[in-house]
Simulated scan of single mutants.
Amino acid sequence: MTTPAFTVRAPASSANLGPGFDSLGLSVPLFTTLHVTPQATTEIVPRGEELAATPADESNYIYQAMRLAARRARRDLPPARIEIETEVPLARGLGSSAAALVAGVVAGNELLGRPLRDEDVLDVTAREEGHPDNVAPALFGGIVIATLDKLGTHYVRLDPPANLGVTVLIPDFELSTSKARAVLPKEYSRADAVHALSHAALLAASLSVGRLDLLRHAMQDYIHQIWRAPLVPGLSDILEDAHRFGALGAALSGAGPTVLCFHDTREPTLPLHEYLHGVMNRNGLTGRVLDLPIDTAGTVVTRHS
């Protein structure tokens, strides 16, 4: 039986949220979308300005992700036409590679008749990325705490607390994850380890019970943000001062340069927007400031009859 054409839509994600380094993230509704049509030969069609420089052949990252699903299922990947679109800005700390990876593995699994369970898809994608903090929320939506070790990939998914919204500052410059990881120290003190563990635990607990008042304190981090701050002009100011303009907490989004602020959806965000634009202006930067809900659907597959 031939698989019908289908669409896969995977959301962007924001990882770490301060102290949850490589283990905590959430999804936001900016999407990478694949339109997959089984046919006699494989055809890769990137669309849009964001993907103009990406390969239009089997070396494309999306197609390589589809092959990961086939390898895990120990099957050959059937040929198809794969049209790729994305709203996720590349190299900005919003999980563009994770959205592409998850979309590709899910599409490959769909093309094969779904031999892999969701947990298999998570494990494949987390091991490919090296950490689960982006791929888990991209796959499941919401807020996800996840671990990756030799025994497997394990996660807890949380629905967002009521009235919790996200404001993101997306600068117009790119910052590669490899460059952002290169500035991190190889070793940390016991005090920094205790600080990270206690604050990550408090952050997860606060999000799970809706204690929005604790987010500002729980999102403090000494593991990666202080080291990456020189790569993102204005980051230190935002982490220190954003709460004065309505932010419930602030963090570097993933490896950056995007910065995420939580806000209470019952309160106006104009003062926060004005503050964030002011930070960009003072540092000679341009970019966008967006209010977004937390996406709760995760990756969605739609079959076409």
Rank of each mutant, 00 (worst) to 15 (best):
V8F: 03
V259C: 03
T37H: 13
H263G: 03
V45H: 12
P293H: 11
R244F: 01
P185R: 08
F262S: 11
R266S: 14
V135S: 03
D22L: 02
D172V: 00
E267I: 07
T86N: 13
L148I: 04
G25D: 06
L51V: 13
A146W: 07
A193L: 13
L175Y: 02
A53C: 04
L94H: 05
A12C: 04
A65G: 08
Y275F: 15
D221V: 02
I62E: 01
M280A: 02
D118M: 08
A80G: 07
E119A: 15
I143M: 12
V121C: 08
L112R: 10
L34Q: 01
A99S: 15
A162M: 03
R81P: 01
A100V: 09
L215T: 14
V166S: 06
H131M: 04
V259Q: 02
G18D: 11
P271L: 07
G104M: 11
L169M: 15
E50H: 12
I143R: 12
N283G: 08
A65M: 05
S189D: 12
I223R: 01
T41K: 14
G278K: 07
S206A: 15
R92P: 00
H263V: 14
L26Y: 10
S189C: 05
G141T: 02
A73F: 08
E274K: 14
A53D: 15
T177R: 04
A196R: 12
A136V: 04
T153G: 02
T3Y: 01
P79R: 04
D22Y: 06
S176D: 08
K150R: 14
P268F: 11
S59M: 00
D192I: 00
S13H: 12
